[in-house]
Each structure stands twice: as C-alpha cells, then as structure tokens.
C-alpha cells in the first residue's frame, strides 16, 4: 500500500513540476470521445512558453523515509514460545517510534504471526501476544495509542510455506504495516 502512496506522491510531484504558472495549451479534443486520439504524433502540443525573467525553486525529488535505512526494516522475529521483543530489534522499534512521533498522522498496524503447529485460534491469540509486545514497546517509546493497532494473523498468512524449523522461525514474526492515511 505504501509503495502505491509514494508512487502517487511522486507522480503528483512530477505533475506539479511540469506545470508552470502559465496556462498550458489545451490538447485538441478528439472527436472519438473515450478512445485514445490517433493523431497525437502529428498534433503534439506546443511547448509551454518559458518565462526567462524569473527564478524558481525546483522541489527536490521526495524520498520516502520509510523505504530507506532502518525504517525499511519492518519485521521483528521471535523465539519459539516467546513473546518478548529481543534486544537486537530495539533499534528497529526505536526508529519507527521516532518516525511515528514526528508524523502523528501516520498509523501503523502491528501484525502478529505464528508457525502452523497447534490450534488455529490459540495461535491467533499467540500472534496477538507478539503484536501487543511490539505495540507496547512503541507506546513506551512515546507513540500515542491512537496511531497504533495490534492485530493477529495467527498461522493463517505464513510468509514461509515450508514445514521445517527454518520456515517456522520465519513465521514467528511481528510486522509493522503502515496503512493508507
């Protein structure tokens, strides 16, 4: 979802950059409404006139903070039968906490997951426990509850499909999922 949001913002930016203060000549209206015009090559619009007498600032290309550095990391892995965030994930959670504090309009859903062994409903509750552990840590780091929701996918949406310990370890996980604003 977020990728789409950033793609849209980049397109919006490009549109904004390509539009100067002056009105662009309108493209000829095709007689065949709804169909793409067949003659674009021949009737290309004239380039907008350039106002040489003015200096403008070009907006730099927007970089999505969430796609770079530690913020690009969204998964917190758990040990078997464990629901505690391991020390090695502290920096990751702190980075997201700091981002969320700086961007109070952003919301994140912590999605808990488990491996496939045992009852589906009990695993759903275990996944919730993992999601809550991450959420609790974010709250302790100053993120308002209103920006957070902890949900569980239990064993229902495994990232790794195998039935070995490597796959099970991959699926004992909490994911930070930024949702559309």
């Amino acid at each position: 979802m977020f990728k789409r949001v950033s793609a849209i913002s980049i397109i919006a930016l490009l549109v904004a950059c390509s539009t100067s203060g002056e009105k662009q000549p309108e493209a000829p209206v095709s007689e065949n409404q709804g169909r793409p015009p067949m003659t674009t090559a021949e009737v290309a619009p004239k380039p907008p006139p350039v106002d040489t007498g003015r200096i403008s600032t070009v907006t730099p290309p927007q970089v999505d903070e969430l796609t770079t550095g530690v913020l690009a990391k969204r998964s917190i892995y758990f040990d078997l039968d464990s629901y505690e965030v391991k020390p090695e994930y502290r920096a990751l959670v702190e980075a997201h906490a700091s981002f969320l504090r700086k961007n109070p309009s952003r919301k994140v859903v912590v999605e808990g997951n488990t491996d496939e062994r045992g009852s589906r409903e009990y695993n759903l509750s275990l996944g919730q426990k993992r999601a809550e552990a991450v959420k609790k840590m974010l709250v302790l780091l100053g993120v308002p509850e209103s920006q957070l929701e902890a949900v569980s996918f239990g064993e229902e949406k495994p990232k790794a499909q195998g039935k070995d310990e490597a796959a099970y370890a991959e699926n004992r996980r909490g994911d930070l999922s930024y949702r559309a604003q």
Binding site: E121, L124, S125, Q128, K129, E132, A150, S152
Partner: peptide, 9 residues
C-alpha cells in the same frame, strides 16, 4: 467471542 480490547485475548 474473543476480543483484544484490553491487549490480550
């Protein structure tokens, strides 16, 4: 039903 309004199930 099972809800997680208080955190745990």
């Amino acid at each position: 039903v099972v809800l997680t309004l208080s955190g745990a199930s």
